[in-house]
């Protein structure tokens, strides 16, 4: 796994962005940027050569699931690994995210270990594919 990979963190709460940013830095990933909803994130993704997207679901403007769908629909971004970190935990929502092509799904509140494990799994699978 490339520790220099560029990661975009999307969440409407700045505290949650900071927590994720700090956890990622602890895991050795310090090349991160932040956005506060899908609308700001999408143009950043389209022009920023990101390697990984970590996004919340419930945000004003553009939600995480819509951002995921937009990413999958974009020719240049369609293979970008996406991790949803969200308080939404209804079965139909998890299924919806899976069908939209999410690479990992973490429910809040979560621990550093869970984040590490999911990121590891995502890049294991991306590397194998």
């Amino acid at each position: 796994m490339n520790k220099d990979m560029k990661i975009l963190i999307v969440d409407d709460f700045s505290t949650m962005r900071r927590i994720i940013k700090n956890l990622l830095r602890d895991l050795g990933f310090s090349n991160t940027q932040e956005a506060d909803d899908g609308q700001t994130a999408l143009p950043m993704l389209q022009s920023g050569n990101f390697d990984f997207l970590v996004t919340d679901w419930n945000m004003p403007g553009m939600t995480g699931i819509d951002l995921l769908k937009a990413v999958r629909a974009d020719e240049k971004l369609s293979t970008l690994p996406v991790l949803l970190v969200t308080a939404e935990q209804k079965r139909e929502q998890i299924v919806e995210a899976a069908q939209a092509g999410v690479n990992g799904y973490i429910v809040k509140p979560f621990t550093a270990e869970v984040l590490k494990e999911k990121i590891g799994k995502i890049f294991e699978r991306v590397g194998a594919a």
């Binding site: 419930n58 308080a87 935990q89 079965r91």
Partner: peptide
């Protein structure tokens, strides 16, 4: 969206954590 699950007010059809 239902948002965070509040103990005692769980939404039906919601899973109960990362394992599920």
């Amino acid at each position: 969206l239902d948002g965070p699950q509040i103990p005692g007010l769980e939404t039906s059809g919601a899973v109960s954590g990362q394992d599920e």
